[in-house]
Design a protein around this nucleic acid. Structure first.
Length: 256
DNA sequence: ATGACAATCAGAGATTGA
């Protein structure tokens, strides 16, 4: 069972690339972020013709998450619990083929310090609280998404260039570590313990051709899911296409 | 310190992103 996370940076702008990727890499479940459209305008019929069901939690203009699946999915959570005043569409969770899967679009947090960084940290605290409840489930759980956190200095092309960025502040990293320490396995690092594995390359300053990327898209596995981990990786070639998203799809394969 | 690049909404330029 192949489960992927892919920040597509706009459904309208990226639909041809999304369809090509689904056809070529054939994920069983695809957690999408930054669909940047309201739910009603998500191309559910086109996606269905491509062989996938859609669960969509959209928003006008920015944010928005979705879960595409070959088998029908049962929605288990829409929106991250813990703050009724938070109207950003950044969390969607479902059960697919016996696996609980979340599509996460964690706030960027720039500029820091400031209210956006405060929102990021508060959101991470809410995510940790919800993740704690999921960790107790007997069924495998996969928390997949764009976490907007560079976990360590090994996950970034230049520590100096990104030193002041919200993505790698000590508070962001501590919150991510704390989440992992609940007992979640960072799938990419379980398969590739060291070395540079990037999932994002900025559009600016020739970041892609000079491989100036960082690792911010993660799949965290519960113990039951980690037991079934067979492989994990990044579809780097997708980033090199014309009109690509600035993120590359990142995935795990779980034993059936 | 800033801007580079891209997408959205709107119908120009601001906002957001990372």
């Amino acid at each position: 069972m192949r489960i992927a996370t892919y920040n597509i940076n706009g459904t309208n702008a990226r639909l041809p690339r999304l369809l090509e990727w689904l056809a070529e890499y054939k994920p069983d479940v695809a957690c999408l972020q930054e669909i940047k459209t309201v739910s009603e305008n998500f191309p559910v019929e086109v996606i269905r013709e491509a062989g996938y069901h859609s669960l969509v939690h959209g928003q006008k203009g920015f944010n928005g998450v979705a879960i595409l699946s070959r088998e029908p999915a049962t929605e288990t959570q829409r929106g991250l619990p813990g703050d009724d005043a938070d109207d950003h569409s950044r969390y969607l969770e479902a059960e697919v083929a016996g696996v609980r899967v979340a599509s996460i679009y964690l706030p960027n947090g720039n500029p820091q310090p400031g209210p956006k960084f405060d929102y990021k940290l508060a959101w991470m605290a809410r995510l940790a609280a919800h993740a704690q409840t999921l960790h107790g489930l007997a069924q495998p759980v996969v928390l997949a998404g764009d976490y907007n956190v560079i976990p360590t200095d090994e996950d970034v092309f230049s520590v100096k260039a990104m030193a002041n960025d919200a993505l790698m502040q000590p508070e962001s990293r501590a919150a991510f570590r704390s989440l992992c320490f609940q007992g979640w396995t960072d799938a990419i690092r379980a398969v590739t313990p060291s070395g540079r594995v990037y999932t994002f390359w900025d559009y600016q300053a020739g970041a892609w051709p000079r491989d100036a990327g960082f690792r911010i898209d993660h799949l965290l596995l519960s113990p039951a899911a980690a037991d079934r981990l067979r492989d994990a990786g990044v579809d780097r070639a997708v980033r090199g296409q014309e009109k690509a998203s600035d993120h590359a799809p990142t995935w795990v394969v779980l034993a059936d």
